[in-house]
Amino acid sequence: MVSLQNINLVFAHKFEAQAALDFFSLEIVDNREFKIYQNSSGMQAVVTGMGFENAKSATAKLGERALEIGMKNGLNMGVAARAWLNIGIGGHPEADIGSGFLASKIIHRNSGDTQFPAPVLTGVEKAAIVTVDKPELGYPENAVYEMEAAGFWASAIEYTSLEFVQVLKIVSDNKKQSIDTVTKELVVDLIKEKLETISDCCAQLQSLVNEYNNAYSLDVASLEIIKSCLESYHFTVTQKIQLKRLVQRYSAIHLFAQLRKIVELTFSSSNELIGELSKYLSRQ
C-alpha cells in the first residue's frame, strides 16, 4: 500500500470507523475529548460523535494536533499540507444500499449554507450531501442525507487548501429500506465493502498533497541552510519570511552554491545577511 502519511480521516461513529481503522492499522493515541488514532506512516483519524457540532469540534481538534506535530518536525517554516476525508453512512431516496458518493456539494440544512468540494477525485459517483440535525425519513431531494459533513467541512478547510477536503458517504438506507433497518453490523459491513474505494480516494488525495508539498515545502538542503542561519543570528518573524523567500529564489535560479558561500561568511546581524543575499540577487 502507498504511504498515506498526510491523510486525516474523520468518522462520526466507531462502527463507521472500525473497518478503516483495522485496514489502515490505525491505533488510538488520544482517548480524552475525542478518540484520535494514528498509524506508523503518519495517517490520522478521529471519531467525532454524532452531529454538526461534534464533527466541527473533533475535526478542529485533529487539525490542531496535526499542526502541532508538523511544527515540531519543521523549523516553523510552513507545515506540510494534509488532506481530509470524512467517511460515513447516509440515506438516499433511490440509490442502492452500499452505493458510494463523493460530495459534489454540502448543504447545511439548518443554516442554508452550501459548500462545493473541488471535484479532484475520480472513480466515485458524485452527489449532493445534505447535513441535517435529525435523521431525514422522507428523502425529499436527490441527495445523501447525513449529520456531520457540514460540520466537518467548516473546520477542515481552516487547515488546508479546499481541494484537499472531501466527503465520501455510503448509502445505508433509502425509500425501500428505511433507517430502522440500519444495524451496527450493517454499518461495519458497508464500510468494509467500500475499503477499496476509501483506499483509492486516500491514494488520490495523497498524490495531490505530495505534489502540493513538493511545490511549497523547502527541500532538505534549503532547510539546512535556514537552520544554520537561525542558529547563527537572531531573526524576527518578518526576517524569517524574508530569509525563506531568498533561499527559495536562490534555489529557483540555480544559485544554491553561491547561497552557501554567502551564508558561510560572517555578518554582524541577520539584517546584514539578508541585505547581502538580496544584493547578490539584484546583480544577476
Binding site: 523567500r245 529557483a252 535560479i253 540555480h254 540577487l281 544577476q284
Partner: peptide, 9 residues
C-alpha cells in the same frame, strides 16, 4: 515559489 521566472529581480 519554485519558479525561476518569479524568482527574478
Amino acid at each position: 515559489p519554485d519558479e525561476e521566472l518569479f524568482a527574478r529581480e
